[in-house]
Design a protein around this nucleic acid. Structure first.
Lengths: 113, 113
DNA sequence: TTATCGTTATGCAAAATTCGCATAACGATA
DNA sequence: TATCGTTATGCGAATTTTGCATAACGATAA
């Protein structure tokens, strides 16, 4: 049985460049969770290179710092979210769930009436 | 001044494959308008190859026929939308505008409170 | 002072995807 | 049966994505 499914996406842009979407949200959450970009990449099952590139692009256009990094030291280094990044995550999550609930509730492909 | 902008997308899928989104909606509308895939591609400023590929992919997964084609003949050939395709367009347009108005009205990045 | 260690940072080539040029196929009409 | 503008599609070029390999880093421990 072929069923038609409604899909939605919501993301934030700065100057037309992606700031945060579903994928980048996952990345930031994984960074917060793992305490490093490396751990985040591993958790998500993507290459470090890819995670780094995504984060780099986000930071390139974000109007505020997203992470604080450190190199070397005991654990070799670390990356942590800034307060603003955590706030951004909170806002984005709210946006996303609102959109989803709206879509689920209102949009039905059966009987358009 | 860097302003954060909320963007949304809505589309329909069949078996996880895109059936119709903003771009394919434009394509179908242009086909309806021009009476041929060739004219549609020209109107949209995309190559015929690209338009054809998109339409092909849509038809590959759509649970009903989207267009009726003819080759040769007076005008060389033509492509017209089926009734189902026009209904799909109507439904999708409604979905899209509803989503947009909801997004505009509800989602505001200032003061999340 | 110096070696260590796991991280961040990045060049670069490979892989995958997208794009579009070029050309064949088509068939109702004249 | 020749014509004409369309549909159909192979294939190489251009672009984007991916990830391997390796350098850089610097607080800590010895």
């Amino acid at each position: 049985m072929k069923s038609i499914q409604v899909r939605t996406k919501i993301w934030l842009e700065v100057d037309g460049e992606p700031l945060i979407g579903a994928g980048r949200e996952r990345l930031l959450l994984a960074i917060e969770n793992g305490g490093s970009l490396n751990a985040a990449a591993a958790e998500l099952g993507i290459s470090y290179r890819k995670a780094w590139s995504q984060l780099r692009q986000m930071e390139l256009h974000a109007p505020f710092a997203l992470v604080e990094r450190s190199k070397g030291g005991k654990g070799g280094g670390s990356t942590h979210l800034t307060l603003e990044a955590r706030e951004l995550l909170t806002r984005y999550a709210k946006l996303k769930t609102e959109l989803r609930s709206l879509a689920d509730e209102k949009f039905c492909m059966e009987d358009p009436r």
